[in-house]
């Protein structure tokens, strides 16, 4: 009897050994993957924008460039940040972190892009199969949808917009309101010596960026340059986390992306987050 019990126990022990299932502990994958190797001719953002302009000269305002096979790769630095919700399903790149000369907007069907394509990240874009044109007044890259540019599908993103290992420090381009022109669309700029219009900040009024009852989709607020008297609109999405920020009353500077409004007629500045509003104790000017 006893020997049999031992045999049984032995068998049970063997079975118990084989009965291991995956424990509740998991290992983290490697932090730094290998550097992606993208093959192709390098094309600058500036060249890309020029290609759009050429196509438009030929075929009119709604013309789009469709990129053929083997066309090449565009390199850029991410200057938009959707973490605060002011940008939605779009990624804006400029060609240089310190001395940008051109910028491009890419439409991507994915949100929370900041988790991968963080601010300052150097990325490579595979142009093959994509299309570019002017949408909402700004050079836009995406997928051709009839006659407009649509967003790149989420399943394809990781192959088309490839991250490098580098995240650069971006220096915003210092401009005055008179410097504003189409060349600098989609670029991170700083406008100094500006203040919000009297209507919006003086007296009892203290408007928010985009949380006023009449704000639909975007809140538009007017900034006036103390130097030139020119105005520029600050546009903030009603879905931005910081839409409730009260407009500062003093004079200061704003750092944001230069873009156009939805209809593409008027220049706008769009903030990544409220740190772009640097309004210290500078007195208002009389404009």
């Amino acid at each position: 009897m006893i020997p049999i019990i031992y045999k049984i126990l032995l068998i049970l022990l063997v079975i118990l050994q084989l009965s291991c299932v995956h424990t509740d502990e998991y290992t983290l994958p490697e932090l730094n993957p290998t550097v992606p190797q993208l093959q192709g001719n390098p094309i600058t953002i500036q060249a890309l924008v020029q290609m759009i302009a050429q196509q438009q000269a030929k075929e009119g305002r709604n013309a789009n460039v469709v990129f053929a096979e083997g066309i090449g790769i565009v390199t850029g630095y991410v200057v938009s940040n959707d973490k605060a919700g002011n940008f939605y399903k779009e990624l804006l790149l400029q060609d240089d972190p310190i001395k940008p000369t051109a910028g491009i907007r890419i439409l991507i069907d994915q949100n929370s892009l900041f988790t991968q394509y963080n601010f300052g990240r150097k990325v490579y874009v595979q142009l093959e199969g994509l299309a570019a044109g002017i949408e909402n007044g700004v050079p836009t890259l995406g997928v051709l949808e009839n006659t407009t540019i649509g967003s790149i599908g989420r399943t394809a993103i990781s192959e088309i917009v490839v991250r490098s290992l580098e995240t650069a420090a971006i220096t915003p381009l210092e401009l005055t309101t008179s410097d504003i022109k189409n060349e600098y669309l989609n670029v991170l700029v700083t406008l100094g010596n500006v203040q919000f219009s009297d209507d919006e900040v003086l007296g009892d009024r203290s408007y928010t960026l985009a949380a006023q009852p009449r704000d639909w989709f975007d809140g538009e607020r007017m900034l006036i340059s103390c130097k030139t008297g020119d105005t520029i609109i600050v546009s903030t999405s009603t879905f931005a986390d910081f839409k409730g920020v009260t407009l500062p009353k003093s004079q200061g500077s704003i750092t944001g992306i230069l873009t156009k409004n939805y209809k593409g007629k008027v220049f706008n500045i769009v903030l990544n987050d409220p740190t772009g509003l640097v309004f210290e104790d500078m007195d208002r000017c009389l404009f």
């Binding site: 929370s112 910081f242 987050d273 409220p274 740190t275 509003l277």
Partner: peptide, 27 residues
Amino acid sequence: DLLQTNIAEELYLGGGHGSATNPVHPT
């Protein structure tokens, strides 16, 4: 992440996307 500037009070920026954690997200 908490963002505190002298302009804004406490702001919370970030949040992941639902489809990253839900493989049957409608999108």
